[in-house]
Simulated scan of single mutants.
Amino acid sequence: MTEALAAPLSDADATIQSMPDASPAKWHLAHTTWFFETFLLRDHLDGYRLHDAAWPFLFNSYYEAEGPRHTRASRGLLSRPTLDEVRDYRARVDAAMDALLDRPELAPLIELGLAHEQQHQELLLTDMKHAFAHNPLGPVYAPGPPGNGAGPRAAGWRDHPGGIVEIGHRGPGFAFDNEGPRHRVLIEPFALADRLVTNREWAQFAEEGGYRAATLWLSDGWTWVQQECRKAPLYWRDGEEFTLGGWRERDPDAPVAHISYYEADAFATWAGARLPTEHEWETMAANEDSSAGNQLDGAGAAHPSGSAGLFGDCWQWTRSAYLPYPRFRPADGAVGEYNGKFMSGQFVLKGASCATPRGHARASYRNFFYPHQRWQFTGLRLAKDL
């Protein structure tokens, strides 16, 4: 899948970095391979020699235990190694990994590496979309942008009586460490919207002065709106939006995407509702098929379409801060840096997006971003108290 997603890219496409939050496609390709080489082959395959002793410095992301690394904001300056050299690196590491695949004691770490690569498959697409959107030519990553969705659908609500519920991953199956331990939470009666907020509804919010009404915004959000001169979601311009298929007419009935937490919260206030908590969302999704909906099945112009269910189309902002669950303890060693050290200043998103590899997400999955970030496929589903 990773190689298929990178197949349409030239060496120049794969090298550019449009902002510090994003990474070049070439870096994603190399970093995911570095993970397998560093945490599996180097430590568990006798006689293994690093593909290139200088590359761990280039392709380590944030693992302090692995030593110094190339500055994140400067990844786009790595004109070398070339895209072909990175592809050769991937092939060599993949071949070496064959010797470890039948060792059951390594299965949890291998599975973590696979889930890690799936996360970077989504990041590769969203980072490439951001880079292409800055090109005045509006390049097409994948031809044939999706057509309009199924048309307008009236919003409804799904009620929940509240009570004491269990939250967090319950096996079998893989989960990231931040999805546990499973624990009890008290929730009050609430209702969750049965669909995502649409472009049509967002346009009404903007037309009625949503971006100009300070009373709708959190204080930090209002400062952000004024400083950044925000007036619409990312990738919007007159009647159009930028997609992985280039510029296209905006479908009013498709879910709105590429909005920040600040924008989502302001819209919810304007609509007389609120954002759900992560516990409310997970409780509603506990018995739903997490592999359903509009998710990523292969290389293509991933785009929200308005599928039914709680999963797919967009990651959904919640009002829950990204914090550790009760009794959470990071794993020992460098892999313990995977999630725990980021539990500060961010908010949880639930569900999955049109760029999430199908089968990657689950009800307990906790995505997280800072409240101003919006280059991911982020949207919102309203909630209200009962």
Score class of each variant (00 low, 15 high):
residue 296 L to F: 07
residue 297 D to V: 14
residue 297 D to T: 15
residue 297 D to Y: 03
residue 297 D to K: 02
residue 298 G to T: 12
residue 298 G to S: 15
residue 299 A to I: 15
residue 299 A to W: 05
residue 300 G to Y: 06
residue 300 G to R: 04
residue 300 G to F: 06
residue 300 G to N: 08
residue 301 A to H: 09
residue 301 A to M: 08
residue 301 A to Y: 12
residue 301 A to D: 05
residue 301 A to T: 07
residue 302 A to P: 04
residue 302 A to G: 12
residue 302 A to Y: 03
residue 302 A to H: 13
residue 303 H to T: 11
residue 303 H to S: 13
residue 303 H to F: 11
residue 303 H to N: 15
residue 304 P to Y: 04
residue 305 S to Q: 15
residue 306 G to P: 01
residue 307 S to P: 05
residue 307 S to W: 10
residue 308 A to E: 15
residue 308 A to S: 15
residue 308 A to W: 03
residue 309 G to S: 06
residue 310 L to D: 03
residue 310 L to N: 08
residue 310 L to V: 07
residue 311 F to L: 06
residue 313 D to E: 08
residue 314 C to D: 14
residue 316 Q to C: 13
residue 317 W to Q: 07
residue 317 W to F: 10
residue 317 W to P: 13
residue 318 T to L: 01
residue 318 T to I: 05
residue 319 R to W: 03
residue 319 R to E: 13
residue 319 R to T: 12
residue 320 S to Q: 04
residue 320 S to P: 03
residue 321 A to N: 01
residue 321 A to S: 10
residue 321 A to T: 01
residue 321 A to V: 11
residue 321 A to L: 15
residue 321 A to E: 09
residue 322 Y to P: 00
residue 322 Y to S: 00
residue 322 Y to F: 10
residue 323 L to F: 06
residue 323 L to H: 03
residue 323 L to Y: 03
residue 324 P to S: 02
residue 325 Y to F: 13
residue 325 Y to L: 02
residue 325 Y to S: 10
residue 325 Y to A: 10
residue 325 Y to P: 05
residue 325 Y to K: 01
residue 326 P to M: 06
residue 326 P to Y: 05
residue 326 P to E: 01
residue 326 P to D: 02
residue 326 P to F: 02
residue 326 P to I: 04
residue 327 R to W: 02
residue 327 R to Q: 15
residue 328 F to Q: 02
residue 328 F to A: 09
residue 328 F to P: 09
residue 329 R to G: 09
residue 329 R to E: 14
residue 331 A to L: 14
residue 331 A to M: 02
residue 332 D to K: 07
